[in-house]
Amino acid sequence: MLTFIIRRLFLAIPTLLVISLIIFLLLELAPGDPMAQVPLTVPPEVKEKMRLALGLGEPLHIRYIKWVWQFFVVEPSVLIDWLTRESALFGWLPDTTLYDGQLRVLSWQTRSPVMDIVVQRLPQTMWVVGMGYLFGVMIALPIGIYSAYRQYSIFDQVGTFISMVGFSVPTFFTGVLLIVIFSVELGWFPSIYDTTLVVNSWDSFMMQVRQMVMPVTVLALFNAAQISRFMRSSMLDNLTQDYVRTARAKGLSERAVVLGHVLRNSMIPVVTVIALGVPQVFGGAIITEQVFKVNGLGQLLIGAIEANDLPMVQTLTFIFALLIVVFNLIADVLYGIIDPRIRYD
């Protein structure tokens, strides 16, 4: 298993380089111009000069190589410097000065390093989208298991109904509906997420909880709907297998049969779905973040796409690609743990 992981990680490097090149070419090919948001009152000659100042005058391959250099060499050196200087984890190491003032990956919208903004956006995305996902998984698994175990019971029917409605009604609608009910009519929760809130007391913690309730609910409902369906169907498949009859015949308790044998064997599709979803957590929930003004990574990406801020889109997309590759590998490793018969050599 270890050699498998090492080999896959090693092979991931060329894969990622290819992915980064494909993303770069795709963004190049996509119609759009960083000047789209500049008012029409700015004359075309000025816009042309602004484009040149963004580096758009340079040929394609130079720009790609520059980005690769900045992302794989300059940015990590900034990160390592920061880790050894300020972070709690590695602060004891001697301070490094790898970063020598070369240009970092700069956003065209803000003219500032992309990674600084990403770091700034991470907390709210992790809090809101991460929690939404975590709750979603935590609700989905028991619902899926019990729905399958008591197939066509009232519980199952209600669960099916809620999860299908939860999935088929889009978040741009449920989000606004919650705001209208709970912010406008009842005034319980704020409709706009305050990203500058610092949690340092009970009151500010409660404030944070209140502003997270609605976005987390919307996301949890959506995620739970999807995952519980896969959990249920996979459990159903396994509950009728011969080994279940054997286990029961052996006199194992119902609990041990269902949670021990059936659940373990049903996890493969569920693990896949959960692992597929984690990179999307980092990608942020574009619509939910917009509706509740969470301004996390999803909002950053969509804003950058609308403004045709190519360095930002390229960097964000590539970070997501990195996570996708890593989590696919994690899923593969988990398959081997769940079902030792699976081998990849």
Partner: peptide, 24 residues
């Protein structure tokens, strides 16, 4: 290996620019 890497590439592509390219 090849098919799963292909899947990863498709998973990684940003949806909106991809769609815009397809329209163009």
């Amino acid at each position: 290996w090849p098919l799963m890497r292909l899947t990863e590439i498709f998973q990684s592509l940003p949806l909106l620019p991809l769609l815009l390219v397809m329209v163009t």
